[in-house]
Amino acid sequence: MAIASSFSFPLDLHRHRLLPRHFIHHRSFPALPISSYPFPLLLKTQNQFFKTSSAPLGSSPTTLDSSLLEDPLRTGRFLTNDEYERLKLLGDFEYFQELESGSMWVRVMRDCELDATVGLLAESFAESMFWPSGYISLLRFLVKQYLIERRALMPHTATLIGFYKGKNGEEEEAEELAGTVEVSFDKRGANASPPTPTPPKDSPYICNMTVKKELRRRGIGWHLLKAGEELISQMSTSREVFLHCRMIDTAPFNMYTKAGYTVVQTDTIISLLMLQRRKHLMCKELPAITMRSPESDAPFSVEE
């Protein structure tokens, strides 16, 4: 089963004129969103129990680069007290899941993991668009600039990364970077020029999700989505979450539907004239946060 979530990388056409016409996105000039072209992720059918853990707000941050909390200027601006507390909440966030083939956990990306995340996103996007390998270096540069800009907007947005540890019989394999997903929580964290159909800028939004090619079909993409939703529940007062799905991506559409998302708007055929794939804007209303024990978690299976 393929999973797709939208891309939202800003590319400056005035500086990068060698790009194909379909590789365009936002800034202050007219552009076509890359998020129009989500890439496929594969998810394996399996019965699983959700198990998550998030440290309380008052505890010391353990998963975010401590220097980021000690020096708020690392975000590129001064932080209010509320923003500082929300940044600590991001640092404390963890999502853990046992899978049939191993285990995975998700947290906020650290500074030292930027290049690895850039490589994962660039390669996945090039693969989904059938781009030649010669474009990878350019993609890496543009994606890195984008992630740096988005990181400066924390805690109004965050890039999550997932790690996977497989099982080989009774032995556990080495932990490795498995995937990433981006979430924005409010208007200040929203992209300047989101893809069409345009979601509300003051509502949470999920995009830029991918799974490492060698680790697909293991449930990682599904749990990246669930981790993003859980973090949104803690960081935003809005219960409505939006994402995009291309009309041609039937498998991702089915997965989002299973996850509770419904179509609220669809691109018109005019988008085809702009060299874009038609997309659904999908929305889900998150439930109120509840404390759950592992015994109360219900299994969920995703059909291939």
Rank of each mutant, 00 (worst) to 15 (best):
G58C: 00
G58W: 00
G58K: 04
S59N: 00
S59H: 00
S59I: 02
S59W: 00
S59E: 07
S60P: 01
S60G: 04
P61H: 01
P61L: 01
T62N: 07
T62M: 06
T62D: 07
T63P: 00
T63S: 09
T63Y: 14
T63M: 10
T63R: 13
L64A: 09
L64P: 04
D65E: 00
D65Q: 05
S66Q: 13
S67T: 14
S67M: 12
S67F: 12
S67Y: 12
L68D: 13
L68T: 12
L69I: 14
L69V: 13
E70A: 14
E70G: 03
E70H: 03
E70V: 01
E70M: 08
E70N: 07
D71A: 08
D71C: 10
D71Q: 10
D71I: 10
P72R: 02
P72M: 01
R74G: 11
R74N: 13
R74T: 11
R74W: 04
T75H: 03
T75Q: 05
G76V: 01
G76I: 02
G76Y: 01
G76F: 04
R77P: 00
R77I: 03
R77Y: 02
R77D: 02
F78V: 14
F78W: 13
F78S: 15
F78I: 14
L79S: 03
L79N: 02
L79E: 04
L79K: 02
L79P: 00
T80Q: 01
T80S: 11
T80F: 04
T80G: 03
N81C: 07
N81R: 09
N81P: 08
D82S: 09
D82T: 11
D82I: 06
D82W: 05
E83T: 09
Y84F: 12
Y84Q: 06
Y84H: 07
Y84S: 04
E85W: 06
E85Y: 08
E85F: 10
R86A: 13
R86N: 12
R86C: 08
R86T: 05
L87T: 03
L87C: 03
L87P: 04
L87G: 01
K88Q: 13
K88R: 15
K88L: 09
K88V: 15
K88M: 08
L89H: 15
L89I: 12
L90R: 01
L90C: 07
L90W: 03
L90Y: 02
L90D: 02
G91I: 02
G91C: 05
G91R: 00
D92G: 14
D92F: 05
D92M: 10
F93I: 03
F93M: 09
F93Y: 14
E94S: 15
E94R: 15
Y95N: 08
Y95I: 06
Y95R: 05
F96Y: 14
F96Q: 15
Q97N: 12
Q97Y: 09
E98I: 12
E98Y: 09
E98P: 09
L99S: 05
L99V: 01
L99G: 05
L99Q: 06
E100Y: 13
E100A: 13
S101D: 15
S101W: 10
G102S: 09
S103I: 08
